[in-house]
Design a binder for these strands. Structure first.
Lengths: 213, 213
DNA sequence: ACCTGAACACCGTTCAAGT
DNA sequence: ACCTGAACACCGTTCAAGT
């Protein structure tokens, strides 16, 4: 049989992502990860300074999966594609996705979508400052929407018909009629439709606020 | 001297929040928390099923700090105040703030701002579905902006002049001129101004997309 | 009903030693 | 240069026992 592939940063990070996808974050221990690579936990420390560095590398792999749209499209269409691709990556790696909020893109592959996005904004005539402001707003919406979707935020939201408060408290429904009325709508809507709605909101807001071009 | 205050859910959660504020998330162990309350780690399990439940309770305390605006204001002004108050709470509890993304409001005190927000949208003539859609978009921006501010996302962003990639990779600046150009703007701007910009974007987008009233 | 201390089954990481 | 196994200093939680 062929020799075991060499232990590299990339191979370790890929194995870590596989563990996350298959077994979740609590299963990602240095010992378990090493066992999957047929090595010892301590061997990993020759390639990463600590577990945090492994998680950072996993994040770079995920960010590299975000597709950078080709040049030539409008800034709106470019932003739309990047945001949808980022959502698709998060849904493909639900257990690993929360890491994306902790580690920004660093490697060239992980930065590709950023460069493509910036380029389309600059080509549309926005100055660097406006481009940075728009980017930050889009990142905020993307990270927040990931949290909501991946953790099932509104599925567990009491306003969405989630678990009631403790018994010694008055019924929230009695005190909060508007939550009773609006709550079910939070959980009943299609997640993709909700994502698209918020994306339309952000893009419409940017169109209204970005300096005329 | 007076007898030690009784061990209650609230007292434990308040002590946990104090530990988080003073020493950070990694210092919040069941043993350390118990020691601060002059009791044993196992005593905490008479009040909470596990550590996760303690963290959930801490989150309810923080959410209860978000101010619910009085009735009578426009939906825009109501949303603006809630969003600013949520940001202030997160900045007051930077180590605990990431918990807000994991546990939705559940207790009546924690739900007060939600009821106030829903009420202002309904009073402005939006139906329950539109109200839910707007709320989800605002929550996404709020959670995302918290992540960005509390973790210093853009301070560490290579596009903002953060640490370079590994040495065996080509210089990102060579390959990504637009990141070189726009990046510094990400780190150099005032966080509050950036937050307000994104908030204006979301509110302008909602105004453009919400059904006529 | 509430609390205790010992113990269990883990962690991430250090260290001394190997090749 | 890379890897190993034992050990250290912790964790969250179970358990048997107390009041």
């Amino acid at each position: 049989m062929p020799r075991q592939a060499r232990l590299t940063e990339r191979a370790i990070a890929e194995a870590a992502l596989a563990v996350l996808d298959a077994e979740g974050i609590e299963a990602l221990t240095m010992r378990h990860l090493a066992a999957g690579l047929s090595t010892s936990a301590m061997a990993l420390y020759n390639h990463f300074s600590d577990k945090e560095a492994v998680l950072e590398a996993v994040t770079q792999l995920m960010l590299a999966e975000i597709e950078a749209p080709p040049p030539g499209m409008s800034w709106q269409e470019t932003a739309r594609r990047i945001m949808r691709s980022a959502r698709a990556v998060a849904l493909r790696h639900p257990h690993a996705a929360p890491l994306i909020a902790r580690f920004p893109p660093r490697t060239p592959d992980a930065l590709a979508f950023v460069e493509a996005g910036f380029r389309s904004f600059r080509a549309a005539g926005f100055d660097p400052r406006s481009t940075a402001q728009a980017y930050r707003t889009l990142v905020a919406y993307s990270l927040g929407t990931q949290e909501i979707e991946v953790t099932g935020y509104f599925a567990a939201h009491p306003a969405a018909g989630g678990p009631a408060g403790s018994l010694d408290q008055p019924s929230a429904g009695r005190l909060m009629p508007t939550i009773q009325e609006v709550g079910p709508e939070l959980a009943n809507q299609d997640p993709e439709q909700q994502f698209e709605y918020g994306l339309n909101v952000v893009l419409a807001g940017l169109e209204a606020l970005l300096p005329r071009r």
